[in-house]
Structure formats: C-alpha cells, structure tokens
Design a protein around this nucleic acid. Sequence first.
DNA 1: CTGAAAGCGCTAACAC
DNA 2: GTGTTAGCGCTTTCAG
Lengths: 339, 339
Amino acid sequence: MVVTMEEVAEKAGVSKTTVSRIINGIPNSASPDTIDRVRRTIEELDYVPNIIAASLKKLVTKTIGLIVGDIENPFFGAVIKGIETTLRNAGYNLILADSSYNMDREEELARVLLERMVDAIIFAPSRQKPGEWLQIASDRGVHVALIDNDIPELAVDHVGVDNFKASYEATQYLIDLGHQKLAMITGPYYRSTSSNRKRGFLSALEDRSIAIDQAFLREGDYGIESGYEKTRELIGLDSPPTALFIANNFMTVGAMKAIYEEELKIPGDISILGFDDMYWYTITQPPLSAIAQPAYDIGRVAAEGVLRSIDSRGKASPKKIELKTKLLIRKSTAAPREK
Amino acid sequence: MVVTMEEVAEKAGVSKTTVSRIINGIPNSASPDTIDRVRRTIEELDYVPNIIAASLKKLVTKTIGLIVGDIENPFFGAVIKGIETTLRNAGYNLILADSSYNMDREEELARVLLERMVDAIIFAPSRQKPGEWLQIASDRGVHVALIDNDIPELAVDHVGVDNFKASYEATQYLIDLGHQKLAMITGPYYRSTSSNRKRGFLSALEDRSIAIDQAFLREGDYGIESGYEKTRELIGLDSPPTALFIANNFMTVGAMKAIYEEELKIPGDISILGFDDMYWYTITQPPLSAIAQPAYDIGRVAAEGVLRSIDSRGKASPKKIELKTKLLIRKSTAAPREK
DNA sequence: CTGAAAGCGCTAACAC
DNA sequence: GTGTTAGCGCTTTCAG
C-alpha cells in the first residue's frame, strides 16, 4: 500500500485514532470540522483503507468462502449469483473455489479458506460424507452452510429442495399421463440429491403399483456423455421405456442427443422430463418439461442464513431449509402412443 | 483464530521464528529433529496459519479480484473456471464480484478490491470508457488485466478474441452461401466487442458490394428479450432478411423463440448464426451454427498473464492478446431458398 | 471531542 | 540452527 492512515492523520493534523473513527463512522467522535478536514485529506491523497490490517485487528474479515463442484454448471451459476448479490449488499466479499467434485480438493479448499480467516463457508458438497476440515471450521466458530447436497450428520445449516417430493410428483405426473414403462437416469447415489431423486421416483411407482424394472434404472454421473450413453442403452432395449426422467440438466442434453440420433419422436415415441430447468428449454423442439429448482434463491437464502448466523455469533441452531420446486409442463411429455 | 503460532512455538519449545520458517519451508533453517517436533505440535493443536497476518506483513495477499458483468452468463462461467483453476494451481485465491454491467458498481468494486489488498484485478468491463479506480489500482502497482471487452486507452493487459475478424468471416460465409439479405442484431455499441462485431459484419458486406440496409441492423442489449423483439421486427419487415447474424448467446435464444413463434423454418426461411457457442447448440432443431470463443482459455491466459506480471513485479509491458475463434457450421445455416 | 499506547498474528533482518 | 526485535496498518481501551 502506498498511503497509510498515519499519513492521512499527519497531513490532517490529527491522530490515527481520529481518522479511524471517521472512516468507520463512529458517531460523536469528531467535530464536523475535523471530519471535514480529514475527509478532504483522504480525498486528496486517494487514501484507501487497508481492510486486511483492520481484519487482523478485529479478527473478522467480512469475507465468505464458497466451495462448489463446478462453476460452469448453470445451476451453480445461478446459486453463486444469489450468494454474491446478497453478500455484496451486506458489505461482504466472496472467495470462490471450484472443487471439481473432488473430495480431497474440498478438504484442501476448506483449509485454505480457514487460513484466510473467512467468517463463514458456504459449501456445495459432492457427497454425503462429512469432511474433517469442515468440522474443524465449524468447531472454531466459522459458520458453515451447506447447499444443494446435504450432509445429514453435520449439524450445520443446509439449503436445498425437497428432491424426494419433486421427483415423486414428477413421476406421478408421468404415470397419470398413462405411462407404465418409466425409466430414470439418476445421478451418483453417494449424493443426497441423487439418492433422494431416485427414491422419489421409485416410491411413486410403488405407490401406483407399477413394477420396477431394474433395467429402467440407470445410474449416470451428471455429465452429458453419461446421459447420452444411458439413454442409448435404454432406447436400445427390446421393450424400451415410453417415458424418461433424467436427474439433471447435463444428462438431459446427452439424452436428447441420443434420441435425435435415433430419430425418435418426442413425446410421440418417448416422453422426456428433466430435473433442473434451463433458460433455453423453451426453444428446443419440443420445449422441454422440467422440474425447476429456485437456484438463485437457494444461494440467497444460504447467504442470508450465514449472515444471520454471523450476527447472532453462532447462537442460532442449525436449520435445514427446503425451498419449493416447480414442475414445468411443456411439450416433451404426453400420453404414451397407443399400440 | 483459536491457536496461534506463538502457542505452537511454546508447546514445541522453540521460537515463533522457527515455526514460521518451518511452515514456509525455508531450507536449512531447522534441524530435522526440530522440524519433526514442530510438525507434530502443529498436527496436535490443529494449528492453521493465519494468512491474513502474513499478508499484512508481506504486503502480498495471494488473492486476485475478478469483476464480471454477469456470473450467470455461461460465457463468463467458462471464463471464471479458467481463471479459478489457473490461479488455484498457483496457490492464489479468487474474490469474485458481479457488476451487473453497471459502471458505478464496477468502480465501487475496484475500490473494494483495492481495500482488500488484492495482488491483481481481472476485469471484464461493460464499456470502453476507463474508470478512475482501475487507473488508481494500476498506478499503485496492482496488476490489472482486462478480458472480453477492451479499454484501448488503458495501458494494461487484455485478453479477448478478434471480434472484427470472427464477424467478418462469418458474414463472408453467409454471403458465400448466396445470401444477399443479411441482418444483424448487435450488442450495445459502447462495448468494444459489440462495435467490432458490427464493423466486421458491415465490412464483409461492403467488400462484397452488398448494399447495407439500415433496417437490417438492429442494436440489442445482449438479453433474451431484446433478441426476441429485434427478431420479430426483422421478420415482420415487408422484405425480411434470409440470414440473421446475432451477436451473442442470450439474444440468439430470443431470436429462436420469435422464429418458432412465427413458424418460420430454419434454415429454409431464414438462416441463423450466433456469436458464442453453447454446449446445447447441438440439440436444438436444427443444431445451431455459431462462432465459438475459447472462453476457458481467455480466463486461463488472463490469469497466467497476471501471475507472470506479479512475478516480474510489473516490469512486463502490457500485452493485448487475441485468441482464436472458430466458426462452427451446423445445420441452421444454408443457401437461401430460390424464389 | 481527541490522543497515546498496546496489540491482532505473522515475517524478516539481525544477532549469536 | 535458532532466537530477539521490530514492525505490517489498523482498532481499541484508557485517559484526559
């Protein structure tokens, strides 16, 4: 740093203390005259306060760390936007870290954030297993909030959606349309979101007494390729499904690719329903039916929770919050063709 | 923070200095024995070094600030990924800030980043006009790199693509297909990218002696709605264009919406070519032709430049780097129908 | 209303 | 090899 508070003080003919108080807007701590003089000096010198120094003294950085699995996933894009906006408006900064869905990385990042003295960590875990550093962080008074996937055994805030219910209702909708041969491409079961989405699907079938064909249940990895391959397998079956429920956005793209390649008609030959809504789902042919998650709000609510938790000095007990999903019915789902 | 270096030192029976040296891996500064003892103590105490304190002393934070216009834009998503990955591998952290394409906000954010003592700022400006704080940052030795839009009068690094050339070539391709009635929906001219894309389009027409119909040139704002409206205007013309070139991803979505609404055939009635490639352009009907920008690499190269610049203590002169675009021809562009 | 002094937790000369 | 000392730039009692 070039110019320090000391220099401002000197030039204005006051002490550092006074300058500090004025900058921090402590009421009744300086005469209007002094305030004016100091303000002008700050202006003249282009003085920029050093928040790092202040942080060291106050033991508070007004910085929050965020660990996500993949910044490039549009779902996280919206979540991050919600977090960043909320935090920024409250005067906080965001340190963003991408774990590539790698657990070792997650651990390392949590540690790095601790070293940087973040006031809180918002974390989108890639699996349900709790990491060691997160617990350490929580133990030392660094507020922790989970988003998307939950880690039930960690007693910290969590913001997500009711994946079971969303999945259950979507499946029910498909059944009501008349489908009996329903397939699902799920995400990896080690994620709470994935396993809940699968459970919802299965549970709906069960409740409607539809036998579960194991060949119709495929575990993907949330990537485009995986959606493509699983779909090929599914439509290659002797008796293929008439409805396909896909657990995330990327796999849905892969699925569409496979379906177009085989020149199957949607929804004539097969109905398609995806988890995660994308802004471009309205311009595919046909427009895609999907379950929308309030991604921005997940971020916003998580950030608000963390802020509240900081304010209350961690005296608030952990909350598990589930936001509402919405089933968006467009044109990719319809009754199965009569045979 | 709970446990400090002092406590580690005490418990291990050495001085802070020794602990510090061991943590920083200064060679030949402690006996293997001491190192071992200290390491074990650190482990036992779950000691986490306080980088904020170190930063204050060293006047280097190993943190870089990034200001983008909209985190949710998938283009920036990829750019951010490139930056984050590169920085992380070099041991740097990223403070992410979203300006909502607002210039006042940009200024404010630059200042906030300065206060936080970032070692460098990577900035995706929303207009060509240079801000005051960025100059101040640069003057104080904070390295500055621009991405996407350039601000020519600022003597700092810039990484982007040759928008003029990309646009020129794409237009040329459309003309070679036989189109004579070409329209373009541009972005706001106050961005260097937008105006260069427009210039490329116009220049290609000129070079092929195709008269420029002003009604065929529409200035959008890079949003979905804007793409939709401008396209409606265009296809509502008495003599509508046979080819439409759209300056970004979001407006392309809007354009598609308008075209489907009017039940026009692509590319039969109108050819569509967009700037920015998206991973889902292969599953629209027809798959969309587009100009791909190496978004991840733009981020990576910008981050590498900033890192290099930090290493060389700013003795490197500013570089303006243009990465290669690629014209991806899929199915939304074809020769105009004979009339 | 204002200032002096004592650190926040760490690093970096400078000694020994 | 290791320790002592003096800060980095700011905030915060405590005095007046």
